[in-house]
Amino acid sequence: MDGMLGRSPEFGWLVSYRGPERRRGTPDRWWRHALEEIDLGVCLVGGDGHVLYANSTARRQLDSCSPLQLTSGQLSAPEAKDQARLDGALADVQRGLRHLICLGRGSGRLSLSVLPLQEGPGRPAQALLVLGKRSLCGELPMMAFAREHQLTAAEQQVLQSLCAGLQPQEIAQRHGVAISTVRTQIASVRAKTATESIRDLVAMVAQLPPMQGVLRVCELR
C-alpha cells in the first residue's frame, strides 16, 4: 500500500499518513473524497508547473473570468504581471519558500497561498495552491451555524446581511422592516451566540470551516 501511494503522481506527498483509512481501499480515492468535501479551492502542481490535481471547487473558481485560469492542465494568468507573480512563487517552491500572492483587481481579485511539498532529497518539490475563499461564509456553514445556535429564519437572514457588509439601516430598507426590528434581531443573535458586538459576531462566522453543500460523487470515480 505504501509503495502504491509513493508512486502516485498526485498524492505521493501523503505517504507519511498512518490513519486507518490507509488499510481500506485506495488512499488516492479517499483523499480525493476528503478534498471534495471542502468548499475551498485546492490544487497540487508538479515541479514542471503541470497541475496534477484540482478539486471541483478550484476547477469552478479558475474559470475564464478568473485572474488565474486552468487550461489543458496548466495554470495561466491573462495579465503578464499576474503570470510573473505566479511563476516567481512556483520557482521559489524549489527553494522551500512559501508565498501569499494576490492576482487581479477589484471584485475579481484572487488571493492564494503557494506552499512547498518536498517528497525527498534531490526530488523537485510540488506546490500546494490553496485559493482564497470566494465569500465570508458559504451557504451550508451558515445554515449549520444557524441551526447550532437555534437562530430563526429571520435572524439567519439578518446575519447573512451583516456578513455581506450591510449596515442595520440598509438591512431594514432591503427587507422592508423597521430598523428597530433589525436591531432586536441582531441583539437576539448576539445573545444566542454569546458575542459582544456585531464585529465579534461577523468574526465568529468568518472562522467557520468551509463545507461543500453536495459531494459530487460522479467526479470522483
Rank of each mutant, 00 (worst) to 15 (best):
Q61W: 00
T71N: 11
W31F: 15
C43F: 11
L35K: 01
Q69G: 02
A77K: 08
T26E: 13
V42Y: 12
V42K: 11
S72R: 15
Q69V: 02
N55R: 10
S16H: 14
E37G: 15
A54T: 11
V45N: 00
P67R: 01
G25R: 07
S72D: 13
R29C: 04
A77E: 08
S72Y: 07
D39R: 04
P78E: 01
T26M: 06
R60P: 00
L75T: 11
R18V: 12
D39N: 05
D28Q: 10
R22W: 04
R29P: 00
L68Q: 05
G73D: 07
A34M: 11
A54K: 00
W31P: 01
H50T: 12
D48L: 09
S76L: 11
R32W: 03
S66R: 02
G49K: 10
E21T: 04
H33G: 11
L62F: 02
H33I: 15
C43N: 12
V15S: 12
G46V: 07
H33V: 14
L52D: 12
E36K: 11
H50S: 13
R23P: 00
L44M: 15
G73C: 09
S66C: 11
G47F: 13
R32N: 05
S72V: 04
W30K: 02
E21Q: 10
G25V: 09
L75Y: 08
A58V: 04
S76Y: 12
T26Q: 13
V45S: 00
R23Q: 11
R24S: 10
